[in-house]
């Protein structure tokens, strides 16, 4: 999903940046559009690289520092390329008391990485996050936009395998 911008072919890179410019242009007349723009840019590139945020800064007439300050405030935004799939494990109390710790250990074991890290093959990133609002089926994880609930450590290998 997220390939570093400078690793793309020059043509593709140009094309992506043009898409970014178009996204900015679509929103620029809306008041307070920055979050929506960042969401779209991340949708295009998988993350929020400096080059893209410069376009956002220019298009929305906001200093780059402010764009970056906003991008780093919210947990759903990434300013560096992450793995192809981001696993977000809820570590809030309802999941915690239903066994999130064991699920985390299973994830660490299977992926060989800890929270905040990416697998060397660029396939996975692991994040600990606050409540994702599916406490009825705790413990839960999100892989990209897909939620998995009622997890036990045994579920993890199967879920991961379905992404291969």
């Amino acid at each position: 999903m997220a390939v570093a911008l400078d690793k793309l072919s020059p043509d593709l890179r140009e094309q992506r940046l043009r898409e970014v410019e178009a996204a900015v242009a679509r929103h620029r007349d809306k008041p307070g559009a920055l979050l929506a723009v960042l969401k779209e840019v991340q949708g295009i590139l998988g993350y929020l690289p400096e080059e893209a945020l410069k376009k956002v800064s220019q298009g929305l007439e906001l200093p780059l520092s402010q764009v970056y300050g906003v991008a780093t405030f919210y947990t759903l935004f990434n300013t560096r390329p992450r793995g192809q799939h981001i696993i977000r494990l809820c570590e809030s109390a309802p999941c915690h008391v239903q066994g999130a710790r064991e699920v985390l250990e299973a994830l660490k074991r299977e992926l060989g990485i800890g929270p905040g890290e990416d697998t060397p093959d660029g396939k996975w990133s692991l994040e600990l996050v606050s409540c994702i609002g599916v406490c009825g089926v705790a413990p839960a994880i999100m892989i990209d936009d897909q939620v998995y609930g009622n997890l036990t450590p045994d579920c993890i290998p199967g879920i991961l395998a379905s992404y291969r």
Partner: peptide, 25 residues
Amino acid sequence: VRIGAGAYVCGEETALFESLEGKRG
């Protein structure tokens, strides 16, 4: 509809306004 980007504090009403205005919540 305006969509948040992952920050519990934005449930606080004035932080929500900031976020809705495209700022840090």
